[in-house]
Lab assay of single mutants.
Amino acid sequence: CKPMSYEEKRQLSLDINKLPGEKLGRVVHIIQSREPSLKNSNPDEIEIDFETLKPSTLRELERYVTS
């Protein structure tokens, strides 16, 4: 899986911020299912740190927000 450039992460962040509330739950689910360290975090307060997410997680999020 190809790592994301800074610009791609920035765009992904903007795209996620534009999602309606009902789609954000899926974003949280994708992150929690792929990032063991965030599995028990509160979905309402999850802070997405794009620098610490795996490339595969970032690509999955990218696919979701652009679908």
Rank of each mutant, 00 (worst) to 15 (best):
L38G: 07
L12E: 00
E8K: 02
S5T: 13
D15T: 13
L61N: 06
L19P: 01
K39I: 09
T57K: 00
P43S: 12
I46W: 08
S13P: 00
S5H: 03
P36N: 08
F50S: 06
L58A: 05
P43W: 15
T66E: 15
R34V: 06
L58H: 05
K2C: 15
K9M: 10
I48P: 04
F50W: 08
G25P: 08
E51D: 14
N42F: 01
T52W: 01
Y64P: 13
I48G: 01
P3M: 05
S67H: 10
P43F: 12
L53F: 06
H29I: 00
Y6C: 13
Y64K: 02
L61W: 05
V65Q: 01
P36L: 05
E51W: 03
I31K: 00
I48Q: 06
Q11F: 05
Y6G: 11
D49R: 03
L12H: 02
Y6A: 15
T66M: 10
E35T: 01
K9V: 10
G21R: 15
S67L: 08
I46Y: 12
R10Y: 05
E45W: 03
Y6R: 14
S13E: 10
K9D: 00
E60H: 07
T52H: 06
R10F: 02
E60K: 08
T66P: 07
D49S: 07
L14F: 11
R10N: 05
D49P: 07
P43D: 10
T57N: 02
E8V: 01
Y64F: 12
E47L: 12
T66N: 14
K39F: 08
P43G: 10
S33F: 02
E22P: 11
P36M: 06
F50E: 10
N42D: 10
K9A: 01
K54V: 01
K23Y: 15
Y64Q: 03
E8M: 03
R34F: 11
I30N: 05
S67A: 14
D49H: 07
L19S: 03
S67Y: 10
N42P: 13
T52F: 04
R34P: 00
L53I: 02
H29C: 00
G21Q: 15
E45P: 12
E45R: 09
Y64C: 09
I46H: 09
P43N: 12
Q32Y: 05
N42E: 13
K54A: 12
I30D: 05
G21H: 15
E45V: 06
N42R: 13
E35R: 01
V65R: 06
F50G: 04
R10M: 07
N42L: 12
I30W: 07
D44V: 06
I46L: 13
H29F: 05
P36T: 05
C1F: 09
K23G: 14
R63S: 11
D44P: 08
I30A: 14
E8A: 04
L14V: 10
Q11D: 04
E22A: 07
I48H: 02
E45A: 09
K39C: 10
E60L: 05
P36F: 01
K2H: 10
E47M: 12
C1S: 14
N40Q: 09
S5M: 00
K2D: 11
E7V: 02
Q11T: 05
I46D: 11
E22H: 06
E62F: 01
E35P: 00
G25Y: 08
G25T: 14
T66D: 11
M4P: 01
V28R: 15
K9R: 09
P43Q: 12
E47D: 12
L12Q: 01
S67D: 13
M4I: 04
G25A: 15
S67W: 09
E8F: 04
G21K: 15
P20L: 04
R26H: 15
R26G: 10
E35A: 01
F50L: 15
S5N: 08
K9C: 00
N42M: 10
D49M: 08
N17P: 08
S37G: 12
P55R: 01
S37M: 08
S13Y: 05
K2Y: 05
N17W: 01
P55N: 10
K23L: 15
V27Q: 00
L19V: 03
